[in-house]
Simulated scan of single mutants.
Amino acid sequence: MEQLLLDIVQNDSSTAWLYHFLFMVLVSMIPFAPIPVLAALIASNHAFFPGLAINMLGSTLGSFLLFLLSKSVLRNAALNYVNKKQQLSKFFALIEKNGFVAVLLARIVPFVPTAAINVIAGISNVRVGAFITATLLGKLPLILAYTLAGHQLAAGNWGTVLIIALYVLTLFLIGMKLKQKWSQ
């Protein structure tokens, strides 16, 4: 299985971009998937802007599909799960008040897993246009960082990769601080 995944990511055929895009869509729908690693690997196999487009559009489409799936099929099961988890129910309350801002902040400062954002937004009253816009704007900084890291890693620019890692770590720490404040 690992070899199959490596073959997909390291594919350098003329249709590699399509495989990478579809793989990113699929992985973006899986909770706790290693999207940063996948985005960096995909970026290392493409020029910067095509890699960014594959990562950004693939992860956004995956998020949108999970959003739609939770809005229709998963609604009852997802509501039961959210009600059992105190922190998720707090996020659900926040997203019910202002869906666009909640999705945007959760994407920019990753303190809620991506799949949870998609599902909670899907079962809440967040409108499709607000979800897509907040997802695109919120995903851009991190996907840009992961893509740049993968591109720089392939070029052997370790200093740039370190700076990007510090940026992502800073966002994570800010997210943890917000999570603590939000949990009180």
Rank of each mutant, 00 (worst) to 15 (best):
F21K: 05
F23L: 15
M24D: 00
S28Y: 03
P31Q: 10
F32N: 10
F32K: 12
P34A: 14
I35H: 02
I35R: 04
I35Y: 05
P36N: 09
V37Y: 01
A39G: 03
I42Y: 05
N45V: 05
H46L: 13
A47H: 11
A47D: 13
A47S: 13
F48K: 10
F49W: 15
P50Y: 07
L52P: 06
L52A: 02
A53V: 14
I54Q: 08
N55A: 14
N55M: 06
M56L: 15
M56D: 00
G58K: 06
S59D: 12
S59Q: 11
T60N: 04
F64G: 01
F64K: 08
F67C: 09
L68A: 13
L69A: 15
L69P: 06
S70G: 10
S70D: 05
S70M: 11
K71E: 09
L74F: 14
R75A: 13
N76P: 00
A77F: 09
A78C: 06
L79Q: 14
L79H: 09
N80M: 12
V82P: 02
N83I: 00
N83Q: 15
N83C: 07
K84Y: 00
K84E: 14
K85L: 08
Q86W: 00
Q86F: 08
S89Q: 13
K90C: 01
F91K: 09
I95P: 01
I95A: 11
I95R: 05
E96H: 11
E96P: 03
E96S: 13
K97C: 04
K97I: 12
N98I: 01
N98P: 05
G99W: 05
F100Q: 12
A102Y: 03
A102R: 04
A102W: 01
L104S: 08
R107Y: 04
R107A: 07
R107L: 04
V109Q: 04
V109K: 03
P110K: 09
A116M: 13
V119P: 06
V119D: 02
A121E: 07
A121T: 03
A121Q: 09
A121H: 06
S124G: 13
S124P: 03
N125D: 12
V128M: 14
G129Q: 09
F131H: 04
I132G: 05
T133D: 00
T135L: 10
L137F: 02
G138N: 07
G138Y: 05
L140G: 00
P141T: 06
